[in-house]
Amino acid sequence: MSARFIPVVVTAVLFLALLIAGSLQFSGFASPRVLLNLLTDNSFLAIMALGMTFVILSGGIDLSVGSVLALSSVLCAILVEKHGWHPLQAIPVVLIAGAAFGAIMGALIHVYKLQPFIVTLAGMFFARGLATVLSEQSIPITHSFFDSVNNFGFSVLGGWIGSATLLLIVVFAFGLWLAHFTRLGGYIYALGGNSTSAALLGVPMGLTTISIYTLSSTLAALSGIVYTFYTASGYALSGVGMELDAIAAVVIGGTLLTGGYGYVLGTLLGVMIMGLIQTWISFHGSLNSWWTKIFIGSLVLAFIIFQRGISAGFGTKKAKI
């Protein structure tokens, strides 16, 4: 087996191990219902983490996604509740706004050679600030369309597949296609592999960079919409710190933070592992919620040390060339 698959295989094994350990301890832990709920409850995080995967694959980082989620949810709520738009009109506007936001960040990064960390940090402040300016209060949404979307779905094996789960599947299918069956996907990996070489090979650097951050922000906006449906409200303080969860999911999913190596499906597994830990803690009853943070932190630590260990397979060679 090629060394580049090892991290994602480890992630998959870890997921199964957690599932088995949990089901030995608690009956009903590994039931389809729990698993499908994992998908539903984490759909917005998974969509956000997908965008983050592409950013990290390219060797960048996007700290703004949590704030973009908040801004989208507030924007969506205002358009629907205060201006009486139909959600189907509001959603495209929100997505386009998200895309434009990402495109501007990408352009700043590319044109002025600014570090993604600091640009997206400014983006994080800006989006959160704009959301706060738009509305400091939480805006509840009462539009009937929200109920019908939330009620849509069907049950499988005792679990529920709702619209969020379906969207998640579609978005990840899109992510897989983008990563492995389009030129842009290759360009993103190329940028993370070695940006100097990528430029010499004719990779359109500006277009790729802008696309990456546009994609990340658009997916963050989409996850904001999912979040708005999930909570039936728009609130400027939602999604605080969620960018960290998204980064953690990507790392646990086996993507190398230096860029160039990693898989979309790994990220989905990473989100599921984080969800499983939460589920396990809630099954456990006596453990408090802050254990989640400690567990996830330790898991991220274990993964990066593990990645250092096996990077003999690819990381060091990359440095040599």
Binding site: R4, R183, G186, Y187, Y189, A190, G192, G193, N194, T196, S197, A198, L200, L201, G202, V203, G260, Y261, F314, K317, K318, I321
Partner: peptide, 15 residues
């Protein structure tokens, strides 16, 4: 100046 993380085939036909 090729990309170490991509396959040989992908390097040949990137873009």
């Amino acid at each position: 100046n090729l990309l170490p993380n991509l396959s040989v085939a992908h390097n040949l036909y990137l873009g």
